[in-house]
Write a protein that binds this DNA or RNA. Structure first.
Lengths: 349, 349
DNA sequence: TGCCTCTGCCGAAACGTTTCGAAACCCATA
DNA sequence: TATGGGTTTCGAAACGTTTCGGCAGAGGCA
């Protein structure tokens, strides 16, 4: 029998309101929504009754008949990653201002959990879904959604054949390399992100392209893989210093990390070894997370407009939901900008 | 007319499944939920049909008739504040494992937005609500919820007459003071949190109590108000150094900040002034946010078990929802623990 | 006065489920 | 062949809304 909970949700219904106001249910509905013609007198009576009874329309019943909900789902790969905080904030602001509820799902970077979350969203009949964070494998699942009338927008997954909000990661990495070069770096190492992750690969590509473009030397030993965490950056710097110098490659005079989190780990690693930053090795990241300002030395980075990305994605989604098919859905590229701080700055040759 | 969206959600319904399997709707329902007696043969046919049609039960319709949803709301005051990240993660994990959807609301520390979020939650008929982050004013609104059968658990708001998960902030501040004293500090300053915020006041109280208990001097000029942000901590240290030394109070030899964010701001301020930490002034925080490990010097802090708090709150809520009135609802206090790092450590007298 | 139009209100149907009581079926027993 | 009991299936009602067609009454015009 599986006798579960007693959630006796006996809140007041529109029927109660109608009775108290002495009108039919349909009239009450019309009066409350202001959708049809009602005399001023009854309108007032209904509103009064609703207030007196503390009536709260049942969104569930409403959705059932209108076949439309005021909820959207946000899927992200790890709510603990600073990258998502501002995104989430932006999304939440736009949605709640429009009267939508935000359902959050954290996939822990697991494709299975992502799939499951999407199923729950479908069950809830969300009006739309925002996919943030990186599908590595399994780009098929989100595509399935297109079938059943759920609007989808992705953030930073511009390859999936869905409308997206993104930044140019190739260019972002290029900005960082350019800046490092301008401050005198000649041997720039790179701490890459997790394999197969789109943003990570693009930044790597941008790094290599920028080296070539500027005629800077490149060396396979200067590229070491991380996992987008500070711990990963910390390990990476150990590996980097160990393998360079004794092999064919000389030690780098700058390190670019594919995200800020790793850059912060790099700083910590260098400090532990007593290597002065930026005098001996300059360090830069990509991301622009708030913490970067407070580490030592403060971190130079290429800032991504995260909050704007969240807002843009939510805005696009709302247009798609409320505008129906008529609205075009222009994906958008947002600009990144260099944030120079001390980790590449003063004291440098 | 306000002609809105075209969200034509024409997904397959249980009726389609029933037709394909050649049974009635009610039989299909029973077969799918495994709730009543069905012959093995029809059960299989129904399941097959459901799979073939990619049937996804409509949670909305289900909720309407069962008068029960599988959603819970989480209200927090600022999703950007690291304090909430682990909490949110813990909550999400427990809920999604139980098949519940998490609706997120960010109040931006505004009582009006909190009230509005709660109204939306009521409209959605969430099964339960978790209130994290600090209601300063307006503790009445959450209490109203008790009326209409929505379970409520608070995190860190143990004064509101609702079941709660909390830490002993007084004791936490005491732990920090004790540690500072043990490392030789005699003149401990305090960067307080925002006025009226419960956790902030308790930590302040704990700081004062601990000073008294250990016979350490206290001085009103050593207490300066912050706002729980790094910028606030940064400003606070400026104010502190300005007002002390020239007045009646000597300069402090340690600073305890009411949260880690402010402590990080304090570190930055001291560094800018060339004051060595911990040699001249030791610094500690309360919170245990990840960033603390990566600032310079790494921050000593009293760690709060944030993820466990989220998990505990979600667990309690589920018990209340599924267990009905029978279940007792024991509020819980979780333990804090000191995390010693360099900001109070080596190099100290 | 009679007819028409407009305004304001109402009843009923529908949305997609679950659940409950009753009908239908099967087989065994009398 | 009837009766009975147990199993399986079915039909209908219900959940709380919105929406649509229609109906009553008021007012305008001839």
């Amino acid at each position: 029998m599986e006798r579960r909970g007693e959630q006796r949700t006996t809140m007041t219904t529109i029927k109660d309101v109608a009775k108290r106001a002495g009108v039919s249910v349909s009239t009450a509905s019309v009066a409350l929504s202001g959708r049809g013609p009602v005399s001023e007198a009854t309108r007032r009576r209904v509103l009064e009754a609703a207030k007196a009874l503390d009536y709260r329309p049942n969104a569930i019943a409403r959705s059932l008949v209108t076949r439309r909900t005021q909820t959207v789902g946000l899927v992200l790969s790890d709510i603990t990653d600073p990258y998502f905080h501002e995104i989430t904030k932006g999304v939440e602001h736009v949605l709640s201002a429009a009267g939508y509820a935000l359902i959050l799902a954290d996939t822990d970077r697991s494709a299975a959990k992502e799939r499951r979350s999407l199923e729950i969203f479908e069950g809830q009949r969300v009006a739309g879904i925002i996919l943030a964070g990186s599908g590595t494998e399994d780009e098929a699942a989100p595509l399935d959604l297109k079938g059943d009338g759920i609007a989808v927008v992705t953030i930073g997954r511009h390859h999936a054949g869905l409308p997206f909000v993104a930044v140019d990661n190739v260019k972002a990495a290029g900005q960082a390399v350019a800046h490092l070069a301008e401050t005198g770096a000649r041997r720039i190492a790179f701490v890459a992100g997790p394999e197969g992750l789109l943003a990570a690969e693009e930044r790597r590509e941008g790094y290599l392209a920028a080296l070539k473009e500027r005629g800077l030397p490149s060396c396979p030993e200067w590229i070491v893989r991380g996992d987008f965490t500070p711990q990963g950056g910390h390990r990476a710097v150990a590996e980097l210093l160990e393998r360079c110098g004794r092999g064919a490659c000389p030690e780098p005079d700058a390190i670019l990390a594919a995200n800020d989190q790793m850059a912060i780990g790099v700083l910590k690693g260098l400090k532990e070894r007593g290597i002065p930053v930026p005098e001996e090795i300059a360090v830069a990241g990509i991301g622009g997370i708030p913490t970067g300002e407070f580490v030592d030395p403060p971190l130079t980075t290429v800032a991504l407009p995260m909050k704007a990305m969240g807002e843009a994605a939510a805005g696009m989604l709302l247009e798609m939901i409320e505008g129906g098919r008529r609205k075009a859905r222009p994906s958008v590229w947002l600009e990144t900008h260099l944030l120079v701080r001390a980790s590449t700055g003063a004291g440098r040759a």
